[in-house]
Amino acid sequence: MLHLGGADGIAEGLEAAETVEIEVASALEAAGTKKIRVQVSKPESFAGRDGYRPDFLDGWPIPLPEPQGSLKNDVRRLRRGGDGYELKYQHFSTVQSISRRMPMFVGVNIDGSKERKIVRTSTPWRFDGRLDVADQIGDDVYSEENNVLDRGHMVRREDPIWGPMKTAAQANIDTFHFTNAAPQMAAVNQRTWLGLEQYILRNTRDDNMAVTVFTGPVFTDDDFPYRGALVPKSFWKVVAVVTDDGRPSATAYEVSQESALSALEFVFGAYQTFQVSIREIEEKTSLSFGDLAKYDGFSATERTHGKRTRARLESLEMVRV
Rank of each mutant, 00 (worst) to 15 (best):
T167V: 15
V38D: 12
H3T: 14
R126K: 10
E258M: 01
E144Y: 09
D206V: 05
R205M: 12
H3S: 08
D135E: 06
D221H: 01
M102I: 15
N109M: 11
V211P: 03
L287E: 13
G269P: 08
T301G: 06
G297S: 11
E283I: 11
D111Q: 00
R312V: 14
Q39D: 15
F289R: 00
F214T: 03
K284T: 11
S286W: 01
D207E: 03
R308Q: 12
G297C: 12
F46P: 01
S70C: 02
F235S: 07
K233Q: 07
G129C: 08
R77Y: 06
Q136F: 03
V188G: 07
T94E: 14
D222W: 13
P103E: 11
W193H: 08
S249F: 09
G6I: 07
V211S: 00
E314R: 15
E280P: 02
P61I: 05
R320L: 03
E86S: 01
Q90H: 10
F266A: 09
I161P: 08
H3P: 01
E18H: 13
E29P: 02
L149T: 14
N109F: 03
L87A: 09
G13S: 11
H305M: 13
V141E: 09
S122W: 10
P67I: 01
V148E: 14
W125I: 00
S143K: 13
R120W: 02
R227L: 09
D58W: 08
W193T: 03
G6Y: 10
Y142N: 03
R79T: 09
A16M: 10
I118L: 11
N146P: 06
G48E: 10
F219E: 12
R227C: 00
E254A: 04
E282F: 00
I10G: 13
F105V: 08
D139H: 15
A11D: 12
R77S: 14
P103Y: 01
G216E: 04
I110Y: 07
D221K: 10
A260H: 00
R116V: 05
R247T: 15
V321H: 01
G48Y: 06
